[in-house]
């Protein structure tokens, strides 16, 4: 397939008078690991919701695997190989960990054909993220970090081409961050899945793992490039110094 895996073209999204995204264009290649950084309220999550189909942009188009998906509902995009996690994890609380992941195997690009097949997929994915020991727990009983891993497993069970991770390492201890980032890199390497991760604060691990960084500020892309280069960009420094200390 020629061209990028994901292409967001001149997307604008307004909520009432507030412009959440202002002519944003980004593209992601197959197997790439991209971090989108930006302070709270910069429009990151809105961008995910536009890519994922929860919101329809007011202007601009979204292309996935060369197809214009701007008008497709979320489930169609998921069938094409788009998976996501939420900033605040939202597993189905009453289902077990294994069942949660099995739902992903049923409805993603994987399209499991029977319960036993879905459960097989679930078990193998739980193994990858290191949650096998909790497979029979009810999701409501997991810790926040475990819920985030569960969301990652659920997304992987869909066999996506592109994985959207919303603040997956936020609130984790440095050692958990290292572990999760390692898992993500491994998944990318072994399964060839492209990953776009939203990050509020640039941490060492992100800098190490990401191949490209895109900076969003007040709904606009203000910088883009290799991590070290972008993070020394004066504009970016100003935004971050202005917001955090």
């Amino acid at each position: 397939m020629a061209g990028p895996l994901l292409k967001v073209e001149n997307v604008t999204k307004r909520f009432g008078g507030v412009v959440a995204l202002d002519r944003v264009s980004i593209s992601v290649d197959e197997g790439e690991l991209v971090a989108i950084i930006g302070p709270n309220g910069s429009g990151k999550t809105t961008l995910f919701n536009v890519i994922n189909g929860v919101y329809r942009p007011d202007e601009g188009r979204v292309y996935f695997r060369g197809v214009d998906v701007t008008d497709l509902p979320p489930y169609k995009r998921v069938e094409m190989g788009l998976a996501r996690t939420f900033q605040i994890p939202r597993p189905w609380p009453g289902l077990t960990v294994r069942e949660n992941v099995a739902v992903g195997a049923f409805f993603g690009r994987a399209r499991a054909r029977s319960v036993s097949e879905a459960l097989e997929v679930a078990d193998s994915v739980l193994d990858i993220v290191g949650l096998s020991g909790k497979a029979d727990e009810v999701a409501a009983r997991l810790t926040v970090v475990e819920k985030k891993l569960l969301e990652l497993a659920r997304a992987l069970a869909m066999r996506p081409k592109l994985l959207l991770l919303d603040e997956i390492v936020a609130g984790m201890s440095p050692s958990d961050v290292e572990k999760v980032v390692d898992t993500i890199v491994r998944v990318r390497d072994e399964m060839g899945i492209a990953v776009v991760a939203l990050v509020e604060h640039v941490i060492r691990a992100v800098r190490r793992a990401a191949e490209r960084v895109i900076v969003l500020h007040q709904g606009r892309v203000i910088a883009e490039g290799a991590p070290d280069e972008v993070l020394s960009n004066p504009k970016v420094v100003e935004v971050y110094l202005g917001v955090t200390q």
Partner: peptide, 14 residues
């Protein structure tokens, strides 16, 4: 079951 547990999440997850 996913719908009953959290319909928005079910929708966003495809």
């Amino acid at each position: 079951q996913a719908i009953r547990e959290d319909e928005d999440a079910a929708k966003a997850l495809g």
